[in-house]
Design a protein around this nucleic acid. Structure first.
Lengths: 216, 216, 216, 216
DNA sequence: GATGAATGAGCGTTCATTCAT
DNA sequence: GATGAATGAACGCTCATTCAT
């Protein structure tokens, strides 16, 4: 392959990094290997990134900035909470189903240390939770979601389910399309697992305990 | 007989390892530091473990073997699926709420590579999913859970929610008791987030897509 | 182009290695010490050699390749077997008399394990034996050497004598010039130790036993 | 196998050591492996030997003390130098042909460092050379050996040839009996390789150069 | 005497990063 | 800007030796 213009070197490095991180893991990845795959010299990496960690962080920041912006944007144009949740779930799952290497990096490699996790949480996860929280609040206002639903807990639960779907998909054979799980996941989240005939007598407790907590 | 291979030494090494792994991460942890904290010589570690990785893996295997055995045991003595799910959620969350370092190691450090993740999945997660799947199937037989609930998806969702609760708790200030989230989590899982007034018209789709998939 | 991979660095490492191996022995030698003596960083060694063993093996290969090539070359230009044997013995002994550290490495350190010995035998010793064998055969054809001389045995004997001269010289005080032993050694090899007056009655046995053997 | 009496532990350790040193080399040999093969605890080794090196040195000292004493003893009862040389060569070669592991240890492992070599030379090799020197001097007195033979050179040459025969045998397939090479080796040493018809004109030079030298 | 668990000094090798060209 | 040879700190693990039992 012919070398492209020098100003897409950064892009080529990031693309190479996703592949190498996905296959070898962050600690197992060698900067020299990323450089080779990107078609640049080892030292060139350091003209675009501060260090190895910065490659991973930049990768994550750039993908997430775009992803969240899109999700938030589309969210605005949709009429109700349920539709929005379906859209968000769909985007979330399709983001990864379309790029398996990226999925591995995000689901596994980015979580290798509390340091990365904390950064991850402090930046985009917070934004993502805010977006989800807004949608849930809207749903409650619209009467579509229970008014006694602990917002933070519901937000984390929604994310937790999506996250687990991606992780399970990665660790399994990736032999199905996670993207198609968006509908069923939202269904389960909205209607619950219990048989509808059953009276939801325990519901009050839901608000009682969790409202005062729910973490971040 | 010479100086006895004292079992408490192995225990001390594991305890030291949890602390060091939690603070420094697996790759950042130094075997020498674990040895020092355990009060043994560096070489002694290798009388009890094959290598650094084996410390982490052993830690995980031993904690999990006991945890799942207990969950399964208690499960037998409980009358219905809902009670069982509450018990399992309670145990899951309390396992970590009682040992923050262990929580960090399990939620973060053990997931740093696809290698660990795969092992984690192949051993105890599979067992855990089997246990949850049995409970869900029982609930369906008893009529407590929807018959159209995709079992695998529900299992992963239930686990995903619990897992996210622990992760959020760790990355937050750990300033509340995750153990108390068991009730609200199960409530949400069972009743769903949607307002009960709302007719669950979309339910059929749930089975349609997910039953054929659900992965592992 | 960046800093050039300078060939003299490789040379300096080999020179340093000879000294360190000679003084400390192969196992006692520290890679860090070789690096220091060569004036390079520890890691630089690994840009030129695969590992510690490769330094020793390369050293040996390079010296031997040149030595045998020269011996073979000169051999061609000499008229008869006796002259050739004198030349080979002279080169052999002078190779080491001129470089005592190299002598120690070749006579002692290279023989520390069957692994090295086997490699040593499989490569240059075989070539050397072939060269000696050719010269002996030529001598037999020319009538200068006994026709009943077992070629392999004579080859090994000739080498064994030279080898022992070098080894004795090293382990003694190296207070004489081994190079000058070439003449006497060849004399002894050719004429034997027995008094010429004595009739060589036992000669037939020589061929009888050894011809069928002689090993490699 | 039942454990034998405790006072043959030393013997068992030495036997085990020969095997392990022969297979793994001195540096590759593990004290724990020797202990295991000898059927004793690791620590027990240190009740009989100062350290690992002492095992090798003791092995060598004991075998050599006996070997040289026997060679010297038999030498006394034999009538002439030639017969004595044949006997010594026979013993030398048979010592190793009867115990291949011992041969490997003596020909290879004992020569791994100048330290061992120096010790080897200072103790038994000196004795051995003295014995050979005496026999050669006797031969000269009896008129069987040339009077102009440089004694030291001849001694080293005789040893060098025997030594090389053993080494070649070891590194080859050991598929013949080195013991039978004694006769041919002595023949060659006594009669030389040159055709008897040829006048030994160069003989005088033999004494000239080497007598003043010859090392130790 | 015998044991073998415990010790801890020691080192080959890796690889992120630098910087002369 | 780009290169890639050079750097050197860092560390998991081994194994000869010790010594409490």
């Amino acid at each position: 392959m012919a070398r492209r213009r020098s100003d897409d070197k950064r892009e080529r490095i990031l693309e190479a990094a996703v592949k190498v991180f996905a296959r070898k893991g962050y600690f197992g990845a060698r900067v020299a290997e990323i450089a080779k795959k990107a078609g640049v010299a080892d030292g060139t990496i350091y003209l675009y990134f501060h260090n190895k960690e910065d490659i991973l962080v930049s990768l994550f920041d750039e993908v997430m900035a775009e992803h969240i912006a899109r999700a938030r944007e589309e969210s605005k144009s949709l009429p109700d909470a349920e539709t929005k949740l379906r859209a968000i779930a769909g985007h979330h799952l399709r983001l990864f189903s379309g790029n398996q290497d990226l999925a591995v990096v995000f689901q596994v490699e980015l979580r290798q240390s509390t340091k990365f996790m904390a950064r991850f949480t402090a930046t985009w996860l917070q934004d993502y939770f805010a977006l989800l929280g807004d949608v849930i609040a809207e749903g409650q206002r619209q009467g579509a979601l229970r008014s006694d639903l602990p917002k933070k807990l519901a937000t984390k639960a929604f994310f937790g389910v999506l996250d687990q779907m991606v992780t399970s998909w990665i660790l399994g054979g990736k032999d199905y399309d996670v993207g198609e799980l968006a509908g069923p996941v939202v269904e389960l989240f909205l209607r619950g697992a219990a048989s509808p005939a059953k009276v939801p007598k325990a519901r009050p407790a839901l608000r009682a305990v969790a409202s005062a907590r729910g973490g971040r």
